[in-house]
Amino acid sequence: MANPHTARLYRTIVGGVGTLIVLIGLVLVPFPGPGWLIVIIGLFVISSEFRWAQRILHFVRLNVEKWTHWVMARPVWVRWTLAAVTAALVAVVVWAAFRIIGLPDWVPEIEVLKYLELQ
């Protein structure tokens, strides 16, 4: 941009919007869904103007690739175990969230929910 004041304002806006997206993603990380994806999208926004965010994205990409290659090189039982542990962690987080905030009113009364102390 030719005008340095406009360029500074643009960088500030991009940095603010990207940071907001990253923070929303970080809040959503413990819950099932795209928490980490939202964090990475926020980093993409920030990296359009800031070199440090480009370095973080590069680091994330390399480590995700390493993790993927490591997991895929393991036997099937290890991959299934990792999937089961991940599913169990997600289930615990969902249960804890519903214990804290309560179930929505539209959820029918089910015996299992009473056993899990959710109703």
Rank of each mutant, 00 (worst) to 15 (best):
E117I: 04
V78Q: 08
D105C: 05
V85C: 02
S47V: 08
W67S: 15
K114W: 03
G16I: 03
A96N: 12
T81L: 15
R11W: 01
V94P: 06
P108F: 12
G102M: 04
W52D: 05
I110K: 14
V14A: 05
G15M: 06
P4Y: 09
W77R: 08
V107G: 11
V17Y: 02
E65C: 08
F98Q: 08
P75C: 04
I110A: 12
G33Q: 03
H5I: 02
L57A: 01
Y10T: 03
L23P: 03
A73C: 06
L28H: 10
T68H: 10
V64Q: 11
G16M: 07
W106E: 15
V92G: 06
I38C: 02
T86E: 06
I110N: 12
A88N: 04
A73E: 06
P104L: 10
I13Q: 06
I101A: 14
L37E: 07
A88M: 13
I13W: 04
L82K: 04
V29F: 09
E111W: 14
R99K: 15
T12G: 03
L62G: 04
V107E: 06
V85L: 14
R55H: 13
E65M: 13
Q54V: 00
L89K: 09
P104A: 14
I56N: 02
V107C: 06
R79V: 06
E65F: 15
V90P: 04
L26S: 06
V27M: 10
V29K: 08
L113C: 12
H5S: 06
W70M: 09
W106A: 10
A87F: 12
Y115M: 05
R61A: 07
L37V: 14
W67Y: 15
A73H: 12
T12N: 05
P104Y: 11
N3P: 07
F31D: 08
A84N: 11
P104S: 09
D105I: 08
W67P: 01
H58P: 00
E49H: 02
V85Y: 02
V17P: 02
V93S: 15
L118S: 04
T12H: 01
P4K: 07
F98A: 07
V29S: 07
W95H: 15
D105R: 14
A53Y: 00
T19V: 05
L20E: 00
E49R: 03
V92Q: 15
V94T: 12
L26Q: 08
P32V: 13
I101Q: 10
Y10M: 01
L116I: 03
G18F: 02
R79C: 09
F50P: 09
I46Q: 10
I100L: 14
T6M: 10
I101K: 13
V107S: 14
P108H: 12
P30M: 09
Y10L: 05
R79D: 11
E65A: 14
N3K: 06
W106C: 07
R55L: 14
I24T: 12
V94C: 08
V60N: 00
F59P: 00
W80M: 13
I38T: 10
I13L: 13
A87Q: 05
F31M: 15
G18S: 12
Y10G: 00
R8F: 10
R61E: 02
R51N: 11
Y10K: 06
